[in-house]
Simulated scan of single mutants.
Amino acid sequence: MKARPELPGNLAPRGLNRGLAAVYIGVSPSKFDQLVADGRMPPPRQIDGRRVWDRLQLDQAFDALPGNDNDENPWDVAC
């Protein structure tokens, strides 16, 4: 049986399955499904029967999520 080729450790795959896409952005698969459904994350690409998310599109969607606009660092506040 042939060994499956693997990417070098410093090279991330471009296409991610649902589970890896969820892990990549730091949420559960069910939360990832919600984010895709409401448009906050991109839809998958179709490769034959597989759904694959583009890592670069995930980066763009993640960057577009609202951030914490509070510039105050809680560690800088005196007690």
Rank of each mutant, 00 (worst) to 15 (best):
K2Q: 14
P5E: 04
E6M: 11
L7V: 00
P8T: 03
P8E: 09
P8K: 09
P8M: 06
P8D: 11
L11P: 00
A12S: 08
R14C: 07
R14P: 01
G15W: 01
G15P: 00
L16M: 08
N17T: 04
N17G: 09
G19Q: 12
L20A: 11
L20I: 00
Y24D: 05
G26Y: 01
G26A: 07
P29L: 05
F32H: 01
V36Q: 01
A37M: 14
A37D: 13
D38S: 10
G39F: 03
M41Y: 03
M41Q: 05
P44E: 14
R45M: 09
R45D: 12
Q46I: 06
Q46G: 00
I47D: 08
I47C: 10
D48I: 06
G49K: 13
R50C: 08
R50N: 10
R51S: 13
R51I: 03
V52T: 12
V52K: 00
V52P: 00
W53V: 02
R55F: 02
R55S: 00
Q57V: 07
Q57H: 13
L58M: 03
L58D: 04
L58R: 04
A61D: 01
A61Y: 00
A61S: 15
F62W: 11
A64E: 02
L65I: 10
P66D: 11
P66Q: 08
P66L: 10
G67W: 13
D71M: 07
D71W: 08
N73P: 03
N73V: 07
W75E: 12
W75K: 06
V77Y: 00
C79N: 15
